[in-house]
């Protein structure tokens, strides 16, 4: 039972991971990334906890504190995570305005259609001179 919190963190990590892989919607994927990030944060914060310790704000008469170093790493990581999530969301907005969708399957389908249309045009362009030669 000593590792129970870590097991729950692993489950949380995997729920976020699954949302990231299995969702077709790009915003849903970023939410999955957020869940994944929070799980990683918890891994660090759980490591910092000391039995019987208090928050690392030094005060006379208190001898046992939790480890402040992981707190520092995660504090900055949270602010950076929101900045990077904003960057991802901005990309989603741009993709939506270019494709009219933010569903991965539709994006791939759109790309394939454009590609096959271009290939068909190229084929026509290449065939045209040969016809001229043969006639």
């Amino acid at each position: 039972m000593q590792h129970a919190p870590y097991w729950l963190v692993v489950v949380l990590l995997m729920v976020g991971f699954y949302t990231m892989i299995a969702s077709a919607n790009l915003v849903k994927r970023l939410i999955g990334l957020g869940v994944f990030q929070v799980a990683v944060f918890f891994l660090y914060i759980l490591l910092a906890k000391v039995r019987g310790g208090t928050a690392p704000i030094l005060e006379e008469g208190i001898a046992l504190y939790s480890n402040p170093l992981p707190h520092v790493l995660i504090l900055t990581a949270i602010v950076v995570s929101v900045a990077t999530t904003a960057l991802g969301l901005a990309l989603v907005v741009r993709i939506y305005h270019a494709y009219g969708s933010m569903d991965e399957d539709e994006l791939v389908q759109h790309d394939n259609e454009v590609e096959s249309a271009l290939a068909a045009r190229d084929a026509r362009v290449l065939q045209a001179p040969r016809k001229a030669e043969s006639s």
Partner: peptide, 9 residues
Amino acid sequence: LDAVDVALT
């Protein structure tokens, strides 16, 4: 978990 700064953030 005693991480008050992290909680506020």
